[in-house]
């Protein structure tokens, strides 16, 4: 028996919004420690990793490990039927071929349940090595979204360059060149408005705007986003899911042909 109840059901709605443009189907791996998802996009350029820890749920029971393969477009349609303040419960029997989503209004006066067929997905799991990144940049998630949206008008790629002075995002194309520089904030009233940079060595990498734009669908999840970069390795774009986990996107850099 698997059952996970989340009073703050809108977190799950937001997680799905942040995945559905990148992935069409994926497996949710459930264990007594929580729920995890790892999947590559269709072109194998990026990887998404989601963690939802058991202790972040209001009730969590997972008697035996199970992998629930789901069509994320369908899951997203179902979760859109939940109100933002609904309590969401996910339930499945052991070795079941379907999963049930239960949405309760906060006053318990409306209860809806939706059943969805599970899929058998033979998904490849990748080992992500522990990496000490050369630069770790934290900035407001909405700022990052805006920067990527703005620079996407100029070209297909964004160059992210981090030095001790700050971080620079650049794009070039037919209409011209765009550069956006962010300095580390000296002092801020609110922590979530800060730009902070932890840098071991300067690093410059080039990434496809298309993917960065898809990652910023997770902006609704968290006030801040963390970008971790090292030379010649994938960028990590991380959004926290409340205090229960994270969505991490890994994006392969553009390389010299």
């Amino acid at each position: 028996m698997f059952e996970a109840r989340l009073v703050q059901g809108n977190l799950l709605k937001k997680v799905l919004e942040s995945l559905k443009d990148l992935l069409t189907e994926a497996s949710w791996d459930c264990a007594d420690t929580g729920i995890q998802l790892q999947a590559m996009d269709n072109s194998h350029v990026s990887l998404v990793s989601v963690q939802l820890r058991a202790d972040g749920f209001d009730k969590f029971r997972c008697d035996r490990q199970l992998s629930m393969g789901m069509n994320l477009t369908s899951m997203s349609k179902i979760l859109r039927c939940a109100a933002n303040d609904d309590i969401i419960t996910i339930k499945a029997q052991d070795q079941a071929d379907n999963v049930t989503f239960v949405f309760e209004s906060p006053n318990q006066e409306k209860v809806a349940d939706y059943e969805m067929k599970l899929m058998n997905l033979d998904q490849e799991h990748l080992g992500i090595p522990e990496t000490d990144y050369a630069a770790v940049i934290k900035l407001p998630a909405a700022e990052f979204q805006r920067i990527i949206k703005d620079l996407s008008q100029f070209g297909e790629s964004v160059v992210i360059s981090c030095t001790k002075e700050g971080v620079k995002f650049s794009a070039a194309g037919d209409i011209g060149v765009g550069n956006i520089k962010l300095a580390q904030t000296a002092s801020v009233d609110k922590e979530e408005e800060a730009v902070t940079i932890e840098m071991q060595e300067p690093v410059t990498l080039t990434f496809a705007c298309r993917y960065l734009n898809m990652f910023t669908k997770a902006t609704c999840l968290a006030p801040q986003v963390t970008l971790s970069m090292s030379p010649e390795v994938p960028l990590v774009v991380e959004y926290k899911i409340g205090d229960m986990g994270h969505v991490r996107y890994y994006l392969a850099p553009k390389i010299e042909d």
């Binding site: 194998h44 350029v45 490849e124 496809a208 890994y250 392969a252 042909d257």
Partner: peptide, 14 residues
């Protein structure tokens, strides 16, 4: 020009 790398170049499948 720059080509797009794939994630499998960096992370081992298991």
């Amino acid at each position: 020009s720059r080509g797009q790398g794939v994630i499998l170049q960096y992370f081992a499948s298991h």
